[in-house]
Amino acid sequence: MANRKRDIRLQFRVTPEEKELVEKNMASLGTTNLEAYLRKMALNGYVVHLDLSDVRELVRVLRITSNSLNQLTKRAHETGHIYRDDIEDLQQSYDRLWGMAEEIMEHLATF
């Protein structure tokens, strides 16, 4: 124990229901370290766990759209032509991107 930075011990009691709630909250955050969880909650009052899967999907679609735009630009420079279908596909990708971004912003606004 002499090597520990945190050498002051705090203790408190909980009911079985409270213990179960603490364990559920920890599980929802994906943490198993009770001491770290309780310390974080005591010092900061809350822990925010963000599911960023929507953001990862947005980035994936952004990459695809950027690649499509680059290919379209390259083809336009090489041939001097832009095809209507290519423009419509690109517009659909941009519409999808904006829709996803709006959904993410609405979801984040609920926090």
Rank of each mutant, 00 (worst) to 15 (best):
N3F: 04
R4K: 13
R4L: 12
K5E: 08
R6D: 12
D7I: 07
I8P: 02
I8H: 12
R9D: 11
R9Y: 11
L10T: 06
L10D: 03
F12Q: 00
R13E: 04
T15G: 00
P16G: 10
P16Y: 02
P16Q: 06
E18Q: 05
E18L: 01
E18F: 04
E20Y: 00
V22L: 05
E23M: 07
K24A: 08
K24V: 04
N25W: 05
N25T: 06
M26Q: 02
S28N: 08
L29R: 02
G30D: 10
T32P: 08
T32Y: 08
T32K: 14
L34A: 15
L34G: 13
E35H: 11
A36I: 00
Y37I: 04
Y37C: 04
Y37S: 06
L38M: 04
R39S: 13
K40N: 12
K40Y: 04
M41I: 11
A42R: 00
L43S: 14
G45C: 03
G45M: 04
Y46D: 05
V47T: 05
H49I: 02
H49E: 05
H49V: 07
S53Y: 04
S53Q: 02
S53A: 03
V55M: 00
V55T: 02
V55H: 00
E57T: 09
E57D: 14
E57H: 10
E57P: 07
E57Y: 07
E57A: 09
V59T: 09
V59H: 10
V59Q: 11
L62Y: 06
R63G: 09
I64V: 12
I64H: 11
I64C: 12
T65F: 00
S66I: 10
N67S: 09
S68D: 09
S68H: 14
N70T: 08
L72Y: 10
L72Q: 12
L72F: 14
T73K: 14
T73Q: 13
K74A: 15
K74R: 15
A76C: 10
A76D: 05
A76N: 07
A76E: 08
E78P: 02
T79P: 03
T79K: 08
H81N: 15
I82R: 13
Y83S: 12
R84F: 15
D86W: 06
D86G: 09
E88L: 15
L90N: 14
L90A: 14
Q92M: 15
S93W: 09
Y94R: 10
Y94E: 10
Y94S: 13
R96E: 14
R96A: 11
L97F: 04
G99H: 07
A101V: 06
E102W: 09
E102M: 10
E103P: 01
I104Y: 03
I104Q: 04
M105Q: 13
M105Y: 11
E106R: 03
E106I: 07
H107I: 05
H107Q: 12
A109H: 02
T110P: 01
T110Y: 03
F111E: 12
F111K: 12
